[in-house]
């Protein structure tokens, strides 16, 4: 819950958080170290007060996450978006122990999206079914840049990907979060190309495709496909972190997104623990698009739009009734704790 200067209480859903374990003990090889160190470089664009020591960044526990995301970070609810990276980490990158612990303790606060990999073929479909039984998920996270044996990535247009999406339909998983990252294969093509999302979104109009990081670094291609397929959404994680060091660029991005996608298809995500949601939300709520940019695109970026981005849009995707949830969360022990405990660790 974030209280604005005018006293309005904004309900907040952080659509993209992670619990990870990139500790030395869990790393399989140098790739595991390089992967988390790259995240740590991204982390450096945070305001100075929010920079973690490297060791804390490698692995953090459930309490740290609750403090940063819910108690300090203003989020009323948050969605886990786990990834495997099994070629880099012994037990995978996602720290399922932490997310399981939090889901059990605070079932009204946390949502868990399952993850899979279409290159697992039949086995993966079975695993998906088992996970669906355990978590009853409405969303699935796909990390198309993950390595698997000799393969360095996959596309949503691959035949097995389609079978997996078919399975999602069957299991009632309607929100597909895709990270379009640096897939390095096939190497000769533009690895960031988002055309496969276009393909999948047209093929599965009943599913929603939330492209995390709004397709960066292919913002222009992303805007283009999102304009055409109304079941494509832009997840603001990563892009929103530029609000601190490169505010003008953030202004340009958000104004383009509002122009091409409209205010109903943009969702907030902090990408915790790369960035702490607290400062992002504070800056986002206060943010104004400079007049010259507003004039160019003619978009509106007021509190109503911000409220949609911070909660309403993703609430619709996950069938969350915000008013009912607000009521229910009044009795959650985490809320009262927020008032009494000094929280920065």
């Amino acid at each position: 819950m974030y209280r604005t200067k005018d006293g309005e209480e904004l309900f907040i859903i952080d659509g993209h958080i992670a619990a990870w374990d990139a500790s030395k003990e869990n790393r399989l090889n140098d790739y595991g170290l390089q992967f988390i160190d790259c995240f740590y470089d991204y982390h450096q664009i945070s305001p100075e007060d929010y920079i973690w020591p490297r060791d804390k960044f490698y692995k953090y526990d459930a309490n740290t996450l609750v403090n940063d995301v819910i108690l300090n970070g203003y989020a009323d609810m948050a969605i886990f978006q786990p990834v495997y990276l099994n070629e880099f980490y012994k037990n995978g990158f996602a720290n399922f122990d932490v997310s399981d612990e939090l889901l059990k303790k605070y079932p009204d606060r946390f949502i868990f999206n399952i993850t899979t990999d279409p290159r697992l073929e039949e086995r993966g479909l079975e695993e998906m079914e088992a996970m669906a039984k355990k978590y009853n998920p409405k969303g699935l996270k796909l990390y198309t840049a993950d390595w698997y044996k000799d393969s360095k990535g996959y596309k949503l247009s691959d035949p097995w990907s389609k079978r997996y999406l078919e399975k999602c339909k069957e299991l009632g998983i309607k929100n597909i979060h895709i990270h379009k990252g640096p897939t390095v294969r096939p190497l000769n093509r533009d690895a960031f190309d988002v055309a496969d999302v276009d393909d999948a979104a047209s093929f599965f109009p009943e599913l929603n495709f939330i492209v995390e990081h709004v397709g960066l670094p292919r913002l222009e291609d992303f805007c283009w496909i999102a304009k055409q397929d109304k079941n494509i959404y832009g997840g603001l994680s990563v892009a929103i972190a530029f609000i601190h060091q490169r505010p003008r660029y953030f202004a340009e991005i958000i104004s383009e997104l509002l122009y091409w996608l409209g205010e109903d298809r943009i969702t907030f995500g902090s990408d915790y623990a790369i960035w702490d949601p607290k400062w992002i939300i504070e800056k986002f709520v206060d943010f104004e698009i400079p007049a010259d940019i507003l004039k160019e695109t003619g978009v509106t970026f007021d509190m109503n739009v911000k409220r949609k981005i911070l909660a309403d849009n993703i609430a619709k995707l996950y069938d969350i009734d915000i008013d009912a949830k607000r009521e229910k969360l009044k009795h959650c022990n985490l809320t009262s704790k927020a008032v009494t405990t000094p929280l920065r660790v």
Partner: peptide, 24 residues
């Protein structure tokens, strides 16, 4: 509009890459 989107994307990526190189 298409031109602008492309130019903007390139410039944004430029900022992004510079930021990461500086950190690294």
């Amino acid at each position: 509009l298409n031109l602008k989107r492309t130019r903007l994307s390139m410039e944004f990526n430029g900022q992004y890459c510079r930021g990461l190189l500086e950190a690294r």
